[in-house]
Write a protein that binds this DNA or RNA. Structure first.
Lengths: 224, 224
DNA sequence: GTCTATAGTCGGATAGAC
DNA sequence: GTCTATCCGACTATAGAC
């Protein structure tokens, strides 16, 4: 149970990736120092060039790790949804419920989890100024999730999956939950929420489910 | 028309702030170098300590500038909305239309404008890891805007302005438009949009208006 | 008010002992 | 596989000429 009892550097590599997520996320690539990275991993500075070849390669390894974490966490709901999209028998209410499963999982991971707290900044930087690392994130995780949500929206609203309006609805839905991460400090000021535990996460999930249903309901009867 | 014909340093100060927004936004505080800041402003490194006292003071000056830009841009729709909120005669459809004016203005500024391209990263970093600068942003601009949107939502849906559910709807509405900035690279991949000019901005505004109306309509008749 | 020169600190990467 | 020592470049801020 000692910090590095068995074999030493057996997992210096993974500790470095863990530290990289935290440090790069918090400070950004250029501002993160190899000394920070190493000391937070309980390792030596020279371990970075040794294990990864350099600071940049460690950054890419961290991106791949995030993509993997997202893909793993979303695999269940996304897989079920993919199946349902391919099933012509799936009706509107089942599709909508499955979309709720997907958004719930996404909210749990991206908004409510401790780990997202760690690497959210990582993703946000790559969204604003994509580097090679964004390829890893997008191809490894985001692509599947966005395609799944868009596919469900398309089926539910009777449009084509590649309709740009469907993509916009998809981003709108994701925006409603992601805003709680991207506008964290504003949420803190307005609602006094210091974290998204328990009830608060559930409230966000419920709001997204409710709004999603309304958003994908054709205007029948309601004039606006 | 020469880059600095009249009086030289007459506006070295404002050029430094302009440059600060771009550089801090792109690279973050720690990674931004005074050399970058100065050269992008066409000024000397020593001009920073001279005009502002140091790098940090320049950062705060840049934050104040952003707050001012947002407040100025939103002043019209927000002012009109404030008035309407106080007017008991304002009916649902007028309130909803005014909310559309506010979200349109916000989308124009935060998503569609060239300047937002410049300083969006600045705000995003402060949302994730607030410093003194966030106070300037929040008190100087965000507070009024969020309060206005929440106030309109409250009136439209017949709830109290300080109801947490109202705040959540407010964030949900803002999230739908902000996501186009915070998930910029994903939008580029999915929709192929390299910018938000013309039709695209209009499409985002229309989506937000449409969704806002649905979101604030009580479930009458529609079962879900 | 703006510049050059420089002081003092800290960055990433490498060499070589263990 | 991990460490210490060290090179060399880049950083912020200051001093002082103009």
């Amino acid at each position: 149970m000692n910090e590095r009892a068995p074999g030493r550097g057996d997992d210096t590599r993974s500790r470095l990736i863990e530290a990289a997520l935290a440090v790069f996320s918090e400070r950004g690539y250029a501002a993160a120092t190899t000394r920070d990275l190493a000391s937070r991993a309980g390792a030596n500075v020279a371990a970075i060039p040794y294990h990864f070849g350099g600071k940049k390669a460690l950054y890419l390894a961290a991106a791949a790790h995030v993509a993997d974490r997202i893909a793993t966490h979303m695999a269940g709901p996304v897989g079920d949804a993919m199946e349902m999209i391919g099933d012509p028998a799936a009706d509107r209410s089942r599709l909508l419920a499955q979309l709720g499963e997907v958004t719930d999982a996404m909210a749990t991971l991206m908004v409510g989890s401790d780990e997202a707290e760690t690497w959210a900044g990582f993703i946000q930087r790559e969204q604003a100024h994509p580097t090679e690392a964004f390829d890893l994130l997008y191809e490894g995780a985001m692509k599947n999730v966005t395609r799944t949500i868009a596919g469900l929206c398309a089926r539910i609203s009777g449009r084509q999956p590649d309709d740009p309006d469907v993509a916009m609805d998809m981003f709108g839905i994701m925006g409603q939950l992601l805003v709680f991460r991207t506008s964290r400090a504003a949420v803190q000021r307005r609602l006094g929420w210091d974290d998204y535990r328990g009830d608060r996460l559930a409230a966000i999930q419920a709001m997204v489910r409710r709004n999603t249903a309304r958003l994908l309901t054709p205007d029948d009867g309601a004039r606006s």
